[in-house]
Amino acid sequence: MRPQAVTRVKPQAETRVKPQAETRVKPQAETRGFVTHDQAAANLNGERILTEIIVVTSGKGGVGKTTTSASIACGLARQGKKVAVIDFDVGLRNLDLIMGCERRVVYDFVNVIQGEASLKQALIKDKRLDTLFVLAASQTRDKDALTKEGVEKVLADLSNDGFDFIVCDSPAGIEKGAFLAMYFADRAIVVVNPEVSSVRDSDRILGLLASKTRRAERGERVQEFLLLTRYSPARVAANEMLSIADVEDILGLKALGVIPESSDVLNASNKGEPVVLDPESQAGQAYEDAVARLLGEERPMRFTEAGKKGFFSKLFKG
């Protein structure tokens, strides 16, 4: 016997509330069918360049947002695109280190917003790629230094300067900095590790992208992409790690790219050279593939299958 009282109440208000989860169940077709930036620009006969704003976000910290922002920005610039990459992590500036321009930061994002420097003064031109610029986060501890209007103005000015892409490197969490990094985005790269807390936080972020962005407010959608990082095919094969399919299945989104776990990532950050610039690195090549897919190219996933381990490597490496 299981005594159970069930009450059904019909609310008077018959407003239909649309659950967000439902709205992004089948994104596969969309991912393939989008108008690429190139097509959009060509449609306008080059009269006006459309700027695309891409947020790199994750919710959880330490999953590889800054590494991804740096490599995606570099990768796009290497394809001849004019790219600005902005660090939204006010108080904890780090993108400059990953990009290797930390000693050239004079003015930062907050200086520009507060009118203490021009955008031109604050943009740091990359030494390797002519069309790549970095806007560093400020080190101020004032959380309210970023404002929605201020961010909007900087993004509009970059757009008027003819930038093709603006990559917004979001801070971790779901506070103001993360909110502002995603608010104006056209596309979102959600960086996720094949690990429970990261996947859960990503789902939370996907919910926010579908409700707390300018596009959502206008009834449009931010185009979402998953990017798996720190993926270990061998551990997946041993059923110790969530697979690409598992993560895609849980989050209802296809992966834009899968970056294998690699010591090259730390080496790259040690040197201040985004890993995508390392032609020897599998992680770098995986980022390059992701950039190509972002630009509308179809490429198969690489480095996602475990190589057959011989008896001796099993014996000695475990």
Binding site: Q4, T7, R8, P11, E14, R16, V17
Partner: peptide, 12 residues
């Protein structure tokens, strides 16, 4: 159908 129903269930 067209209505949202508030479903409250209490396990005693």
């Amino acid at each position: 159908g067209d209505n949202d129903v508030l479903d409250i269930s209490v396990a005693l």
